[in-house]
């Protein structure tokens, strides 16, 4: 009888383990990195629009005007003495940007956003905290600068998230979207 109990225990463990591993491993959005820009098309003037690209932290992204790399994306308790309000959390992002043009470019505080619920049609997003991010950063031709962005978002927001950048041309035409995954 003891043997039978042991066997039942062993089988229960097997069933539980199998339940964990198969077939319902995770319900998260896969957040795979892409091989270049997907689903884009090119206008007659050579401008690529409406595409999107997913990369990991540390991967370089080349946009129309500059290259950028997210050095770190991490959850922090505070940033420059700024603490998250109740039921909120802070995500700090460090991005290094290199101006690839022969003229100066401006980075607005709302050029980057943090998005989550990536698997939903209506994704949630926030822009950086106003007081803790310069309203505008100017980068000279061929210059490289590192900027810090701090996002305050709902405490229950879950990974995978992404730092989001959307190219917008001066004539209002939208370019491609870039996602730097935070998994």
């Amino acid at each position: 009888m003891k043997k039978l109990n042991k066997t039942i225990l062993l089988l229960s463990t097997l069933v539980l383990l199998s339940g964990c591993a198969l077939p319902f491993q995770s319900k998260n959005y896969p957040a795979w990195t892409t091989k270049g820009i997907l689903e884009s098309y090119t206008l007659s003037d050579g401008t690529s629009i409406d595409g999107w690209m997913g990369v990991n932290v540390g991967d370089k992204v080349s946009t129309k005007w500059y290259d950028f790399t997210a050095n770190t994306i991490e959850e922090v308790d505070s940033y420059q003495e700024y603490k998250a309000s109740d039921n909120k959390k802070l995500i700090h992002v460090s991005i290094t940007i290199t101006n690839t043009l022969e003229k100066d470019v401006r980075i607005d505080d709302e050029d980057f956003a943090l998005v989550w619920d990536l698997d939903k049609e209506d994704r949630s997003y926030v822009y950086p905290v106003k007081d803790k991010t310069p309203k505008e950063t100017s980068i000279k031709a061929k210059e490289t600068k590192t900027i810090d962005l701090i996002f305050e978002l709902d405490k229950n927001a879950k990974k995978p998230m992404a730092v989001y950048y959307y190219e917008q041309y001066e004539d209002g035409q939208k370019g491609n979207k870039y996602y730097i995954y935070y998994k």
Binding site: K27, P30, W32, T33
Partner: peptide, 23 residues
């Protein structure tokens, strides 16, 4: 189906099965 578009291996697609089942 997706190897030409994404940097993936079999393990990645295995983990993504629940997502594709839903969507």
């Amino acid at each position: 189906e997706y190897i030409n578009q994404y940097n993936i291996n079999i393990l990645d697609t295995y983990k993504a099965i629940p997502y594709y089942l839903q969507t």
